[in-house]
């Protein structure tokens, strides 16, 4: 095969140019990655990634609708033994009789209100069989019973400016922050029953949150206090590097 210098030269020139462009683009990509990875941490996460999570959250909250429901399952689909993942913030000496929950920041009362389990049980009973989703990736179907958070909020309405709800265990060691729209979703329950039985201690007796529009981390057990706020409340797992919104 005869070599054609002009073709070889031309191809060498194109090769140089192509690989140079590729090299520069690769360096730019790596520099972008290194830049993000080396940014200051904001709750255990580089701030540019936090910002992206906030943008994602903004889109999700814009799209969110209380009329979109988590799919429900037949009662028979519920697992007999629901997995227990965490007990952070839970006290082991709580009994339903003496248990009290504070509701603060409501427009109905300036001072925090103290409620007993019977006060929650007086609200209309509601329930659903839904699939609980752990942020780790597993999911299980469970049958929940209790009162809608929205029904509690009818008695103790959020002030007009409130956008968020904070819930914490009695000792304050576990705490979740929720956007008001998700809290008011018709499937958001203050649950005291699991699989038609009173909630067991390990699942958060006497009262826990069941919020199918969020990952399990937001489904706080042994609720000790609820309060409304205008600003975004602290959240246990968001403080450890997770997405604050954690919405499904």
């Amino acid at each position: 095969m005869s070599r054609q210098p002009d073709i070889q030269t031309e191809m060498a020139r194109k090769t140089r140019r192509g690989f140079l462009t590729g090299g520069i683009a690769t360096m730019a990509g790596l520099a972008g990655w290194a830049w993000i990875a080396s940014r200051k941490l904001e709750n255990e996460l580089q701030w540019p990634l936090r910002r992206v999570l906030r943008v994602n959250e903004k889109l999700a909250r814009g799209y969110f609708s209380q009329s979109r429901l988590a799919p429900t399952f037949p009662r028979s689909a519920a697992v007999a033994e629901l997995r227990v993942n965490e007990d952070i913030g839970m006290d082991d000496d709580i009994d339903a009789e003496n248990w009290r929950m504070q509701v603060a920041g409501s427009s109905a009362s300036i001072a925090p209100v103290t409620l007993a389990l019977d006060d929650i049980k007086k609200l209309p009973h509601s329930g659903h069989v839904t699939e609980l989703k752990c942020i780790e990736g597993w999911s299980q179907v469970a049958a929940w019973g209790g009162a809608k958070f929205a029904d509690l909020a009818k008695q103790f309405p959020p002030p007009e400016k409130a956008r968020y709800v904070s819930m914490a265990t009695a000792n304050g060691k576990y705490y979740v922050g929720l956007d008001l729209a998700s809290a008011m979703h018709p499937q958001t329950l203050l649950a005291y029953e699991l699989n038609d039985q009173p909630l067991t201690d390990e699942h958060g007796a006497p009262l826990r949150l069941v919020i199918p529009t969020k990952y399990g981390i937001k489904n706080i057990k042994q609720i000790g206090s609820i309060s409304y706020s205008e600003t975004r409340p602290k959240d246990y797992w968001a403080d450890q590097g997770y997405d604050w919104y954690a919405g499904l």
């Binding site: 799919p71 989703k133 999911s139």
Partner: peptide
Amino acid sequence: IYKYVQFAWLAALLGGYPMAR
């Protein structure tokens, strides 16, 4: 998987959440 409730119809079409994953 990401927005299971908002796109429940899509998850259903795919055979549910565990199947989508």
